[in-house]
Design a protein around this nucleic acid. Structure first.
Length: 580
RNA sequence: GCCCUUUUAGCUCAACGGCAGAGCAGCGGUAUCGUAAACCGUAGAUGUCAGUUCAAUUCUGACAAAGGGCUCCA
């Protein structure tokens, strides 16, 4: 958590920015300027004027000059009328004032130097002394009050610290983080490409990228087998009619691609796997004895994401969801959730992802059109999930309005290299769909009942997971995930034959091995392999050939000395098997 | 989709409105080498389409793609 003093400093810096903006752009209209996790921003309506990055340094200069006369922030209480009068030309402030007054809250202004702004307070006590180490970072667009129906304001982001060292460190951290950006590493390590000819948001996995994907899926498959899941396989399209029945047509239409005709029937690309799995369930009568049925598939889905939303592998238009649908009786809910939570925890441990949090995603009753209407069922489902979270000792935040249209969910959120949050695992409780599609089972009393459905995404999206893992490991994947595990570097062509023999031995034992016979110096070969983050290098020269051994070097630069091939294989195997 | 920014060779970067230049990678050779860059040679580019101009990589506009945000979301 950010301490209040720093937040106050940053908010004060937002005031300073706003005052300087008015100096340089007198007709600009201020909206709001809060402090945020890594700094602050101010949203401003510049009207017809355009502001560019060059203006940021001008603004910084003005801020540096202005702050010298800012000795304090003084509170000024105003009546609604006085306040509205002061901001009569500013629709944003007026809107805020009217709202505050409607809620019966006090209306306070704060003065610093000659600048006065509507503000609830929380400032630096001596701005002229403390407010020195700041930087304006970027210009962005942001809709007033976050709604795309409102006008777009210009948002200026900045950051601020109490001393130069903290500021420099922060800026350095941002630079460092850019180096582990999965798009940059994806190119450098040859893991995936996005071709303009194929289309945006449609990543192509290269052999190395595809290998990591396979490793992830193989791991999950093993985990699922241990937990009683069964794999299915389903096509990428389905009749539009199906989605009209599920309600996706009404609630999900804007991310589905336009339908196309086959034999006079209307079809769409599937935006999720649920209906396909349900139809497997309903293909024959089900007994309560069969439940829970856990169907699973890494299914590729197609979603229309707006251009501006696409981001490397983190947000794509064709995504593979490691999707499962568990159909069960009501009294199996707790056990199934517990099992899935354990699987998620285990998987996160295998990926060494420790920095994640849990979000209980509920509906937002004020946005009723977004959800299937039935308040009682929603309430019941939400309470059930909250209890499950508590029973499993998970710390959580509540995400109002984050639910799926068919039910609340437990989401697992991780961060990327730029500290942005991304949802990975998701466990969704669905008390609606079985009834709606008339999915049934015969219970012990001989009566037909509707199963409860748990939608489970283990990583959520394989593409996103790949991106998160690339950034998390900075490309240096643990041995079990590394696309190339060992590279053999013969000192010269003379040793290529012996190297070939060693390579065969490793390949035979399932170690992913490459051999670099290029006519290059050893130093260069080591450099290249290290830059490609290959976990182990085997160096072969006269010594090794003579003693029937190999020399091993790790990607960290450690010389592990000379050993027998069989010893090395044993070491690798142990490491691979005990990764989690 | 919207706001801001960017686009020069496979990659990283140069070039006042006046002949587009380098390093690495590639290709052809030479050296047969002991733990992060051997040496010589060679080929390769201004995102697309308009406009202004005697002259455009450079200025203007449209389009495309990419990046940072907003909205949305796995």
């Amino acid at each position: 958590m950010i301490d209040q003093k720093l937040a106050n400093l940053r908010h004060s810096c937002a005031h300073l920015l706003a005052a300087s903006v008015l100096d340089l752009f007198p007709t600009a209209k201020l909206a709001i300027g809060p402090s945020i996790e890594d700094g602050f921003y101010y949203d401003i309506d510049f009207g017809e004027q355009k502001i560019t990055n060059e203006d940021l340094s001008k603004l910084e200069k003005t801020m540096k000059g202005k702050v010298k006369s800012w000795n304090s922030f003084q509170r000024i209480d105003k009546s609604k009328k006085e306040a509205l009068d002061y901001f009569k030309d500013n629709p944003y402030k007026s809107e805020l004032i009217n709202e505050l007054s409607a809620k019966g809250e006090n209306i306070t202004f704060y003065r610093s130097g000659e600048f006065v702004d509507l503000c609830r307070g929380g400032h630096s006590e001596s701005p002229s002394k403390d407010l020195k180490y700041f930087k304006l970072l970027s210009i962005a667009g942001a809709y007033w009050r976050g709604s795309e129906k409102n006008p777009m304001l210009t948002r200026i982001y900045g950051t601020c610290f109490f001393n130069k060292e903290d500021l420099d460190n922060h800026l350095k951290t941002i630079e460092e983080a850019k180096k582990r950006d999965h798009r940059k590493l994806g190119k450098e390590l040859d893991l995936f490409v996005i071709s303009e000819n194929i289309g945006k948001g449609l990543p192509l996995l290269t052999p190395k990228g595809a290998l990591i994907r396979k490793q992830i899926l193989d791991y999950e498959y093993q985990l699922e087998v241990e937990n009683g899941f069964q794999q299915v396989f389903t096509p990428h399209i389905a009749r539009s009619e199906m989605y009209k029945k599920t309600g996706h047509w009404q609630h999900y239409r804007d991310v589905m691609y336009a339908p196309f005709g086959i034999d006079g029937e209307e079809y769409v690309l599937k935006p999720m796997n649920c209906p396909h799995h349900y139809m497997i369930y309903s293909s024959r009568p089900r007994s309560y004895k069969e439940l829970p049925i856990r169907l699973s598939e890494a299914g590729t889905c197609y979603r229309f994401e707006k251009t501006g939303e696409l981001a490397g592998l983190l947000r794509v238009r064709a995504l593979s969801i490691d999707d499962s649908h568990i159909l069960m009786t009501e009294d199996q809910i707790e056990d199934e959730f517990r099992q899935c939570i354990d699987m998620v925890k285990k998987m996160f441990k295998a990926f060494k992802l420790h920095n994640f949090y849990v979000r209980l995603s509920l509906s937002d009753p004020s946005d009723a059109v977004k959800y299937i209407a039935d308040e009682d069922t929603w309430k019941k489902a939400g309470e059930k999930l909250e209890k499950i979270i508590k029973d499993n000792d998970l710390e959580y935040k509540v995400g109002k309005g984050e639910a799926s249209f068919y039910g609340p969910k437990i989401d697992f959120i991780v961060r990327d290299s730029l500290n942005r949050e991304w949802q990975m695992s998701t466990l969704q409780l669905d008390l609606f769909m079985a009834k709606r599609l008339n999915l049934t089972y015969i219970d012990e009393d001989g009566k037909e009942k509707h199963p409860v459905i748990l939608h489970r995404g283990l990583t959520g999206s394989i593409e996103r997971t790949l991106a998160i893992l690339i950034e998390h490991f900075a490309g240096a994947f643990p041995l079990w995930l590394a696309p190339v595990q060992v590279s053999i570097l013969p000192l010269s062509e003379k040793f290529a034959d012996y190297a070939e023999k060693v390579k065969k031995e490793l390949l035979l034992k399932g170690i992913r091995t490459e051999q670099n016979n290029e006519n290059k110096t050893l130093g260069l070969k080591i450099r290249e392999a290290t830059l490609h983050k290959i976990p182990y290098l085997i160096i072969i020269g006269e010594k090794e050939v003579d003693s029937h051994s190999i020399s091993v070097r790790s990607r960290e630069g450690k010389n592990l000395g000379q050993l027998k091939v069989s010893e090395f294989i044993t070491q690798l195997k142990t490491q691979i098997e005990n990764f989690s």
